[in-house]
Design a protein around this nucleic acid. Structure first.
Lengths: 225, 225
DNA sequence: TGTACATCAGTGAACGCGCGTTCACTGATGTAC
DNA sequence: TGTACATCAGTGAACGCGCGTTCACTGATGTAC
């Protein structure tokens, strides 16, 4: 169901000679998902339109139903992909932190980096970011990561680990640890929302960078007192 | 255009005798706005449907065009109303702060109160809150309050005033003042978003209250160091 | 005080739009014998 | 190695939906004389 062996037919040559075959696409599910992701990237969740994705792939709308139960499932796939890319961006930012030898300092700079990676993705891919967090009426929002939905938010584990480090290195008082994820997440998520399609949409790049660093500073230092 | 004198016809008796008149509604613009606001309140911005508002008022869809240029203008009116109610909620929360005699303490508790009022409104009126910040493709998002759009966000002046007090009472170092609005706004806005239709939708009331206070504490104390 | 008339605020039917989805179908593929 | 056949992955036409909006219209209202 999931594996196809005949992939060489499309992998080998992008050019399908006209009239000849290409009837069985071979990788239609991924092609549709890629098209849908481009739509989300350009226009946000509202733009994830099954018919348009099919159109872009050059296939009839009906064909999509061989691979997705419907529009809701297609959108959900894009959402999941967005969440994953968000986590990748956060991890990348953390990996940029130099090891200065001072564990507390490293933990602190990693905590900021997690947020920086979050915002970097949000600003670089606003449409996909919005889609990752959009409400999908055809598929319920998964549970909070604090409850049962941990695996639905791959970035959450990363955030939790970084905050734990703040405690073990003595930077954050253990009493302040509970709920710290929510506060940290709220701060970066709010800035992303206000900037992406809210009142702060017209912030200049320099203002944006300043606001980002100021927010990261305020939030991390607020958690450590 | 704006003033009607013949209002007693509807103000006097809610019951319009059947067959008799009620042809000229007298206050249709407000009736439509009220209906649209109820739609937003119950279903968010997507639910603000011109035809449905007209239906609820008992009038043909066309009639709405006497009072609004179109759906976009109706939605905009609901947005503005939502922003105003948000500001009212914030002001009410500030007014609850007792004057302990210590100006610095008062400024601090007011800063938290502003955020508390924001979140109180968001959680009490999620649909209207979402509408207040929704993207309206038929009317451009006004400029940032930092730039030209101050009057479009009545709550902003309140936030700025409260933050100023933190500086004048010596609680916040003046160097930390620039950008403080954005950080504060982001924190509360992010929590609202994550809870209202995001991953934290299933937080229990107690968890929500704890998260709120924790966030307010972290943010205010982070700004004051 | 009465009447003609301009204006105002509604009606109701119709339009086009693009969507998600379903239907009966058909061409291509791989496998059992 | 060939052939019959089940299955798989597409096609294309059509459906219903509800929306925003426009059209020509008409009933009610207020005002000038």
């Amino acid at each position: 169901m999931e594996e196809h062996r005949g992939m060489e037919s499309i992998k080998g040559d992008g050019s399908t000679e006209p009239g000849r075959s290409a009837y069985h696409h071979g990788d239609l599910r991924n092609a549709l998902l890629r098209a849908a992701t481009e739509l989300a990237s350009a226009g946000g969740p509202e733009a994830v339109v099954l018919r348009e994705a099919a159109r872009r792939v050059g296939v009839s709308p009906t064909a999509a139903y061989r691979h997705f139960a419907g529009q809701g499932e297609l959108l959900q796939a894009v959402k999941d992909l967005g969440q994953e890319e968000l986590a990748v961006s956060m991890q990348a930012a953390v990996d940029e932190c130099p090891d200065t030898g001072d564990p507390g300092e490293v933990a602190m700079s990693r905590a900021k980096a997690v947020g920086r990676g979050y915002l970097r993705f949000a600003f670089a891919e606003p449409g996909l970011f919005r889609t990752a967090f959009c409400h999908n009426p055809l598929a319920p929002v998964p549970d909070s990561p604090d409850h049962a939905g941990k695996e639905d938010y791959p970035s959450y584990a990363l955030l939790a680990a970084v905050l734990d480090d703040l405690v073990t290195t003595g930077r954050m008082p253990p009493t302040r640890r509970p709920g710290a994820e929510i506060t940290a997440w709220s701060a970066v998520h709010g800035l992303a929302q206000l900037v992406i399609d809210g009142p702060l949409h017209d912030l200049a790049p320099a203002e944006l960078a300043a606001a980002t660093e100021s927010l990261l500073h305020t939030t991390t230092s607020g958690m450590c007192t």
